[in-house]
Amino acid sequence: SEKMMIFYAECARAKRAVEKAISACSVGSQDILNWHYVKQLTVVETKLHINHHLGHSTFKNADEVACLEFAEACDRISMQMNCNLEILPLFLNFDDNDEKAGTKREQNGNKIGTK
């Protein structure tokens, strides 16, 4: 039962990290993350709730921005809160292979800001 209590505490910490990461995102991204991913509404239902935040951008672009904002914030916050990586893994991975690929992309004139 001690292992279960420890696991429960680690899961609760990971849940708090996810909630903090969502709240660290922009308002439009928070809406997409909460309606589409937390409440699991369809894209059409989500659009009805967030249409006023999208402006001229499409839902797909706004969704990609929301996911990137969340990934960056979640990685930072989960590391600060010392979350178990088996429960809440890191979303962004920058290793040597990515740096080499990034250099190659820049040489081709096809810069990509973040992964």
Rank of each mutant, 00 (worst) to 15 (best):
W35P: 00
V65S: 03
E72P: 00
Q40P: 02
T46Q: 01
C67A: 09
K111P: 10
Y8I: 02
T58H: 01
D63S: 10
P89E: 12
Q40G: 09
T103D: 13
L54V: 07
E10H: 12
L54Y: 05
K111Q: 10
D96H: 02
Y8K: 06
N61Y: 09
C67E: 12
V38F: 09
E45S: 03
E72D: 04
F7K: 15
V44P: 00
M4P: 00
C25A: 15
N34Q: 06
H56W: 12
N51R: 10
E45A: 04
M81R: 00
N93P: 00
V44E: 13
L68D: 10
N82P: 00
S57V: 11
F94S: 06
D95P: 00
A21G: 01
M5Q: 14
A12W: 10
G102Y: 07
R13A: 11
G102T: 08
C25H: 15
L54R: 05
D98R: 15
S1A: 04
L41T: 01
L90S: 08
V27K: 14
M5L: 14
D75C: 03
G102K: 12
I50R: 06
Q107I: 03
M4C: 03
E72R: 08
Q80M: 11
A12M: 15
A17T: 00
E45P: 01
W35G: 01
K115I: 15
A101C: 02
F94T: 14
N82E: 14
L85Q: 06
N84G: 04
A21F: 03
K20Q: 14
G113N: 08
E106K: 14
D63L: 03
Q107H: 04
K104P: 00
S57E: 13
A73E: 14
L85T: 08
I77H: 04
L68S: 08
W35K: 08
S1G: 12
H56N: 15
F59D: 04
L90D: 03
H49N: 12
E99I: 15
K104L: 14
N84D: 14
G102E: 06
D63A: 09
E64D: 07
N97S: 13
L41C: 03
C25W: 15
H56E: 15
N51G: 08
M79Y: 06
V38Y: 06
T42E: 09
D63Q: 12
A17Y: 01
I87S: 03
E64Q: 08
K104V: 12
Y8Q: 07
C11H: 05
Q107T: 01
H52G: 08
L90I: 06
K47H: 05
H36K: 10
K100A: 12
V38P: 01
K15D: 10
K100N: 09
I50N: 12
D75F: 03
Y8N: 03
K100R: 15
K115A: 01
H56P: 11
A14E: 00
N110G: 07
Q80I: 08
H52Y: 15
H56Q: 14
I32L: 05
F70K: 03
N51F: 11
Q80R: 10
T114K: 13
S78Y: 05
V44M: 05
L68F: 09
A14R: 02
L88N: 06
A21H: 02
H49E: 11
D31I: 00
G28M: 03
R76Y: 09
F70E: 01
K111A: 07
M4Y: 01
S1P: 06
C74V: 15
K104Q: 11
E2Y: 10
E19V: 01
Q30P: 08
